[in-house]
Design a protein around this nucleic acid. Structure first.
Lengths: 250, 250
DNA sequence: TATGACACTTGATCCATGTCATTTTATTGA
DNA sequence: TCAATAAAATGACATGGATCAAGTGTCATA
């Protein structure tokens, strides 16, 4: 019996369809009906596995399609000639990246794994074709693009107007929210990225990240042990960012 | 004869079709054939005129579609509760804005005119419908979205990794390029935005903008008179930003 | 041509972060 | 188990821009 179960699970894993993927309702297929999902499914290039710190693409690489993270984590970034990286985004399981290739069918930034990572590819030509007959998919793609854009805008506000304290608090809350979304604890998690990458995302120095983590800890807001984060006082974090974005709500 | 000419011109102006618009090959219709253009044309809401400093939309307003600037200039921005504005983009004639509404059919940022401005609206529902039968339009929309995204990414690099000098140089070169694109002088132009807005875009203080303009002028790079900019030494400007983005090219 | 109102400039001062140097801690691999 | 290496933390110091506080110029309106 146990053996049979394993067999079934193995088959499912081998198929790795969107339908069987636990992340599908966080990912691009969200909102599609079973039939639509089935069509889309046929075109998806099934998960590839990469080790830690492997480059997935770089500027001028041909744009093949959207990438969906299944496990692990990916960072996208631009660099200065002097080497500094500006991290554009961290991409966790269920999230999509690679949209920067849409403008000219060439990638514009770098994408690199932050740990052992598996991902799917949604080839753009097929996706585009499917959009012709599937309004729902079209909307889903636009929703996704709009979402990315709004994330970038929030990131611009962070880099342009927030203090280092506010930036780190915003960052922790963002990661927390995303763990929660996947059904994990929003107050106790393992960061997938290095201090260096956090600094690159927040536009501050690594040393500042270290010092701020220490300061947050001393204030009893979080407990940090290397990459393990435990949020002790999430209200305090929310308070810290209360003035940061004015969404027009009261 | 003269009278007839005027009559013809008047008719064309009244119609204000994309076909007759001098900006159409910079704008969304770029790349569409005459027939496609004609179909699109029917759906476009014809130019509206607004005075200086008028709000076009704000967060939570219903998303109606894309906006195309015909004349004047528009800024889009987010604000902190304390009032600071992070300018997300300046939108000059021929450029499109309002894409932030794609995520949830609600605008997420503010859009305000910077001078007397006229613009067209491309209603989203119709645009989406047209995309079904017009692959070229679909590609054009994706191209546009990709472009916006890449602009935001360059802006992130600017805010996260560049010095104030580099930021201002990058900004001047960007405006210069966009004037050139429209067929105007790339070295002598009138800025449509205030010092305050430049500061908000670059993530620095107004005072710093003033001092940097002065410093650039003393170095013989530009001549600034209020909003009138004359670029004296564009090579120097390019030099200043040479290390800023590494596009992977040699 | 006076009178605000506002945008911009300039100067003086301060401080939040960056930079550089060193130590500590974790990780890897022989 | 012990280097060897890399990542993170810490300390001392420097500084690019922010902030605050006057000024000056410009434009609109009466």
């Amino acid at each position: 019996m146990q053996k049979l179960m394993n067999q079934v699970q193995l088959t499912k894993q081998l198929k790795v369809s969107c339908e069987s993927c636990s992340l599908s309702d966080l990912c691009l297929p969200r909102g599609l009906n079973a039939k639509e999902l089935d069509v889309l499914d046929d075109y998806i290039e099934r998960p590839r596995n990469l080790a830690h710190n492997v480059q997935i693409y770089q500027p001028n690489d041909k744009f093949v399609g959207f990438y969906a993270v299944r496990s692990g984590g990916v960072k996208t970034y631009l660099t200065k000639k002097t080497g500094e990286q500006q991290i554009l985004g961290f991409h966790l399981p269920g999230e999509v990246f690679g949209l920067d290739g849409l403008e000219n069918s060439k990638q514009r930034c770098y994408a690199t794994t932050m740990e052992n990572t598996s991902y799917c590819i949604l080839p753009y030509d097929q996706l585009d074709q499917l959009c012709e007959d599937m309004p729902e998919l079209r909307h889903q793609v636009c929703h996704l693009l709009g979402h990315e854009m709004n994330c970038d805008h929030a990131h611009l506000l962070l880099l342009g107007q927030q203090t280092a304290h506010e930036r780190l608090a915003t960052f922790l809350l963002s990661i927390s929210t995303r763990f929660k979304r996947r059904g994990f604890s929003p107050v106790s998690f393992m960061l997938p990225m290095s201090r260096h990458d956090i600094a690159g995302y927040l536009g501050i120095a690594v040393e500042t990240v270290s010092r701020l983590f220490k300061s947050f800890q001393e204030k009893g807001i979080v407990k940090i042990n290397r990459k393990q984060v435990d949020i002790i006082d999430i209200d305090k974090l929310n308070e810290m960012v209360a003035n940061c974005e004015d969404s027009g709500q009261p």
